[in-house]
Design a protein around this nucleic acid. Structure first.
Length: 963
RNA sequence: GCCGGUGUGGCGAAAUGGCAGACGCACAGGACUUAAAAUCCUGGGACCAUAAAAAGUCGUGCGGGUUCGAGUCCCGCCACCGGCACCA
């Protein structure tokens, strides 16, 4: 294709207009309070030249956001500009419609690759990062996107991460008040009575994974401090974390895929470490419920719903036999099966295990704990098929029937979910069933499938049908299940809902009612309570890296010798990372920051925190900073936030956010969480950050495979641009198919839209002058080629004469289709509508200005460079006011022009299409029927037959039913 | 296993329950050209038929159903893609 003739001089047009836009600052968005410059096309369009902008005099805002990229060394690939093109088209369209559009771009520039490069070469990550940003900027700018570059930001900018650290301080200095159901400043936290009265620090108040070297606090102040620290939204925990030796850092649960790191695919092991956590679980319910208030795809919402994993059930206390009152709590979603609980299982890490294990079982339990601890997550997943576990020797009492049941430990019970302990109901849970089978534990059926008739089976109460798995080849059948009205016993495990059997006072009740009744009974007897659990875990927020935001935190020791943390004051921000020669972790496994001894001990009697924040931190609030990117007093100003995030009357936030599905549960959940905290604390005006969210689909290689370096099927936008130009590239990205779909790249397809642009060009320019231009180009040095564009003349067929009805109809049909498709984000069909227009216009002898100009406006959002160029030529020749195509009011279609006087109707006979007839638009049914019957082709099928029925759908079709 | 999505020509794809395949790619034929490229015109789901046509039949993953009429709605399968996965 490189030998083929250039369709039109995009190589000159595109840089020309990109420069023009930049010089004009054409796409700068204006905030309330700014003075709108004279001569700016936006000021002109809205009559605001020289005026001070305010929420009142500015047009409605529209905030269109792309997920900002990590500026990798590899540069842009064709997947990036897919979303960027879509948002750019909409941004340009909205400007034309009259909105004040905010469309910014920036860089998610903290990240591992630059740090790994630093470890290898010693080059500071900032140097690498800046070079990569420069390359990304060049590439993105070459595509002609209408970003407001004055708001550009990078998460690595000191002036940016200063505020990231500031937000961390807000998290650190607040707690979640479940009474008011929101985050509040830590000062509002009240202290429990025992704090002042009891000398001892109660065992019961110690949290799971209590800190590191815990020494009993000695003063009330120390106790208060510990109490506060346990309630902060940012807290320290010493718990097993996902440690990736290869990366030398811990990872959040979400960053671990199948036991391997999401980045690089390295093995991940569980290791107890002191880590910073963010209390996202406090927001589980809000994060779940508020999904209803935002316009995201069902599948994306579903992913978040699954991730949050809400489940309703009950906590039930099980006393341990022969200990006089020591108990543990289990969580179950099926309290109705309590009568079928035939043993209990604690997770190997459960704190009670050490206390209850009998001497005989001690060795077995210790061995098993060691075995379970040694397993990586990957092994745990792989070995999931075969259940393992050991008996502790201890027994629990089933609270509903007083039976003594065995307590086991097994790693199929997770320490991190629920209470870390379960009651096992093998008859009605697949996992418990497998386990019971393997270890010959009793299986008791307590739920039967509902009988076919609606008979009530209340007579079943009081029976107990029990059996040992070992003594029955087939699962036991409830002894009382024989009567016709009784629930049917089926194959076990029976995990569905049904009718309770063998369950004393709840027998005969359908599952839902049985749950209610037994939960009430448990609550009444103080043996349990209704509970809601979430799969969502707190967010592991620290990383052992150099290239991230340092924590504004220092460590000190109290009188008792306890290490404790303290926040630096806001005045200490930003906390800059130290300069290092060597970016590796220390030999002792400490983060790289620990190498900077001076920095570490800069503050008297204190040591700095050496962890840094994860990459997600910066992306949690960048959309807010865009609205007020230069604010030095605040992370975002109130007016800016109110205008850009809250002034549209809808639920909230960014009007349209486009990015890949890979962020469905990470970034999008974290950002919502931060936003909600900031909202609760009164720092932002809306409860949700992103109102409408669209995921663009993946672009595959030409071979239909995912693009990857190893497959060698990566398409570099730079190459495509050289060959076809930015407009063709943009057009093709959108023409491939629906934005949300996964679709393969096809270079031949680019040629198609490129040819279309060539046809548009030839529709407007004089062929001879173009030839002259091309000849001149061969004899002129490259630097002066731009001037030669003036040699190209408008086509003589374009004149300022009245358009024919047919021409108007072609235009207005196109306006309607393109407008409607833009509103529905159906870019592919909008483009096809413009192709239809072009194909039609090619046949015209005269091309009225009144038709050709609006067409260019339709084209402009998609292919802005060629549209601007042709627009300016029309302006040059016809001299009508055309300050800038970018702000020219969007054309409106005239429905009256699209009305047909005659209409073609399909005629069916017995539902089969046979012919079309032409009738007047307003023809009555009798006329239509007569016309249909008169058709020769139809005659063949109805001749000699009786017409039983005639169906006429006005303006749609005719169907004749014959015998 | 659970949740979500998608199945339409050789390919990317269109179709408020009403003429399936718009638009584009690839392909074939023609015009222009010394020739090619570019451009312009024409054709095209499959089958059957024919010198060529017309007419006809079948066609939206598979099997049923609703309807005058189904790619579209309902029920049951199958395949592929994405997410989650011992979450009690």
């Amino acid at each position: 294709m490189s030998s083929s003739r250039r369709q039109y001089p995009f190589h000159l047009i595109e840089p020309k207009w990109q420069q023009t836009w930049e010089q004009q600052q054409a796409f700068r968005a204006f905030n309330p309070g700014e003075v709108l410059p004279h001569g700016h096309p936006f000021s002109k369009r809205h009559g605001l030249e020289g005026k001070t902008a305010s929420a009142e005099n500015l047009p409605s805002k529209f905030y269109i956001l792309d997920m900002f990229p990590y500026p990798s060394g590899a540069g842009l690939h064709v997947g990036h500009p897919e979303g960027y093109t879509a948002t750019d088209i909409l941004a340009r369209y909205r400007r034309a419609v009259g909105f004040n559009v905010l469309h910014p771009m920036g860089w998610d520039s903290f990240g591992l690759p630059a740090e790994q490069y630093a470890v290898k070469t010693g080059q500071h990550p900032r140097v690498t990062t800046e070079a990569n940003i420069a390359n990304f900027t060049r590439q993105i700018k070459s595509l002609g996107f209408s970003y407001d570059w004055s708001r550009e930001l990078a998460t690595t900018d000191v002036e940016y991460f200063k505020w990231t650290q500031w937000i961390f301080l807000k998290l650190y200095n607040s707690w979640f008040n479940s009474e008011t159901n929101k985050a509040e400043p830590i000062e509002t936290l009240e202290y429990p009575d025992w704090l002042e009265k009891v000398e001892e620090y109660p065992e019961i108040d110690r949290v799971k994974g209590e800190p590191f070297h815990f020494i009993r606090p000695q003063t009330i102040e120390e106790k208060k401090r510990i109490h506060r620290d346990k309630h902060r939204l940012a807290y320290v925990s010493e718990a097993p974390v996902n440690w990736c030796p290869e990366l030398g850092t811990v990872l959040a649960n979400e960053e671990v895929i199948d036991g391997k790191s999401e980045v690089g695919g390295f093995p991940v092991i569980r290791k107890p470490m002191r880590q910073w956590m963010l209390r996202i679980t406090a927001y589980a319910e809000k994060l779940l419920q508020d999904l209803d208030t935002i316009d995201w795809s069902d599948s994306l919402k579903q992913m978040q719903v699954n991730w949050i994993g809400r489940s309703e059930g009950a906590e039930v206390k099980f006393k341990i036999s022969d200990t006089g009152g020591v108990y543990f709590t289990v969580f179950t979603t099926r309290p109705d099966t309590l009568f079928g609980a035939t043993y209990c299982v604690l997770s190997p890490e459960h704190s009670l295990v050490a206390h209850i294990t009998t001497p005989e079982q001690e060795k077995a339990v210790a061995d098993y704990k060691a075995y379970a601890a040694g397993k990586s997550d990957l092994e745990r997943t792989e070995l999931a098929k075969e259940k393992t576990g050991v008996f502790t020797g201890a027994y629990a009492i089933n609270p509903v029937n007083g039976e003594k049941i065995q307590i086991w430990i097994a790693d199929y019970v997770l320490a991190s979910y629920g209470t870390g302990a379960i009651m096992a109901v093998p008859a009605h849970d697949t996992r418990d069933f497998e386990f019971a089978k393997k270890f010959n534990l009793p299986i008791v059926q307590v739920v039967g499938s509902a009988p076919a008739s609606g008979a009530v089976a209340s007579a079943l109460a009081g029976n107990t049908g029990r059996a040992n798995a070992s003594s029955h080849a087939t699962p036991p059948i409830a002894a009382d299940g024989a009567s016709a009205a009784a629930p049917e016993a089926g194959a076990l495990p029976f995990v569905e809902e049904g009718i309770a059997i063998n369950s004393s006072f709840i027998s005969g009740l359908p599952t839902a009612e049985a749950k209610k009744k037994i939960t009430a009974w448990l609550e009444d007897k103080k043996l349990g309570k209704r509970t809601i659990n979430y799969k969502l875990r707190d967010w592991l927020f620290s990383r052992q890296r150099y290239w991230g935001e340092p924590f504004p935190i220092i460590w000190k020791k109290d009188a008792a010798g306890n290490l404790y943390h303290e926040a630096l004051p806001e005045s200490a921000l930003p906390v800059l990372p130290p300069t290092l020669e060597d970016y590796k972790p220390t030999a002792g496994g400490e983060p790289p920051l620990a190498r900077a001894k001076e920095w570490l001990n800069e503050i008297p009697d204190a040591t700095r925190e050496t962890n840094t924040m994860p990459q997600w931190a910066g992306s949690c609030w960048y959309y807010l900073r865009y609205t007020d990117a230069k604010n030095a007093q605040s992370f975002v100003g109130k007016d800016a936030d109110n205008y850009w995030m809250a002034s549209n009357g809808k639920a909230a936030g960014v009007d349209l956010y486009v990015g890949g599905t890979e962020h469905a549960v990470l970034h999008l959940l974290y950002a919502r969480f931060w936003h909600k905290v900031l909202f609760d604390l009164g720092h932002v005006a809306t409860p949700e950050p992103f109102y409408k969210l669209v995921n663009q689909g993946l672009i595959l290689g030409e071979d239909g495979q995912k693009m990857s370096k190893s497959r060698g099927n990566v398409v570099n936008p730079d190459d495509v641009l050289v060959e076809y130009g930015a407009d063709a590239f943009r057009l093709y990205e959108m023409f491939m198919g629906p934005l949300q779909d996964t679709k393969p790249w096809n270079t031949k397809g680019v040629e198609g839209v490129y040819r279309f642009l060539g046809r548009v060009w030839r529709l407007f320019v004089d062929e001879k002058s173009e030839t002259a231009f091309e000849q001149a180009e061969t004899t002129t040095e490259a630097q002066r080629h731009g001037e030669l564009l003036d040699l190209i003349m408008l086509d003589g067929g374009i004149t300022d004469i009245a358009a024919s009805p047919a021409q108007l109809k072609t235009l207005h049909a196109c306006i309607r289709k393109v407008t409607e498709d833009l509103d529905g984000m159906r870019f592919n069909t909008a483009i096809s509508a413009m192709m239809v227009f072009t194909n039609e216009a090619m046949t015209w002898q005269t091309k009225p200005l009144s038709v050709m100009k609006p067409f260019l406006q339709l084209l402009a959002p998609f292919a802005p460079h060629i549209a601007e160029e042709l627009w300016s030529r029309l302006h040059g020749t016809f001299g009508q006011t055309a300050p800038s195509l970018a702000y020219a009011p969007w054309p409106k279609y005239d429905a009256a022009l699209l009305v047909e006087s005659e209409i073609e109707l399909p005629v069916q006979v017995n539902g089969k299409f046979r012919d079309t007839i032409k009738v007047a638009m307003d023809a009555d049914n009798a006329t239509i029927e007569a016309a249909a019957k008169a058709s020769e082709k139809v005659q063949q099928f109805i001749a000699g037959k009786a017409i039983k029925k005639v169906i006429i759908v006005p303006k749609r079709m005719v169907n004749l039913i014959v015998a």
